[in-house]
Design a protein around this nucleic acid. Structure first.
Lengths: 68, 68
DNA sequence: TCTAATTGTGATATTTGTTTTACATTTGTT
DNA sequence: AACAAATGTAAAACAAATATCACAATTAGA
């Protein structure tokens, strides 16, 4: 699964630490997520979409490998 | 977090077992999710949205308690 | 270039999602 | 009522998400 959190963050010009605070997770969670190291829970994904005021599917997109 | 998987499933008139197979998870996962016993990963949520051909935010919605 | 801010990384611990197996309960049909 | 299909539930095990702490590497500004 891919995500465009880094881009959304850039649009708002906020740091990982800022976003972490807003989303109420640790900075490392944001960092690891941006680096594609893991997939967030749906609650966290919804929170981020809400914070960025963007459809969740605009931020998170499935890849073929997500169906294996 | 709330979800309307049961409703979407009813629209398509398929069983939990059917959906489980389509979404490539166990039937218990679908069941527990419908009963609100836990929150799926974003990958699974995206798969379901894609299967139902509905925006993810139409199926999964945050509640106030999801921000605590 | 120095320095501070930001980002990346590693290890460990805890919590939560998911599977499997197996059985109980409910619902729908005949 | 009896039977089958669908749904709910429980426990154990494993996988994955998230936190925390600590430090290294990179980037941006003065």
């Amino acid at each position: 699964m891919k995500n465009s959190i880094k881009v959304e963050r850039a649009k708002k010009n906020i740091t990982q630490a800022d976003l972490a605070k807003l989303a109420k997770v640790s900075r490392q969670t944001i960092n690891a997520m941006e680096l594609g190291k893991y997939v967030p829970s749906t609650v966290l994904a919804l929170r981020l979409a809400q914070l960025f005021d963007v459809e969740i599917s605009k931020i998170f997109t499935l890849e073929d490998s997500d169906w294996v």
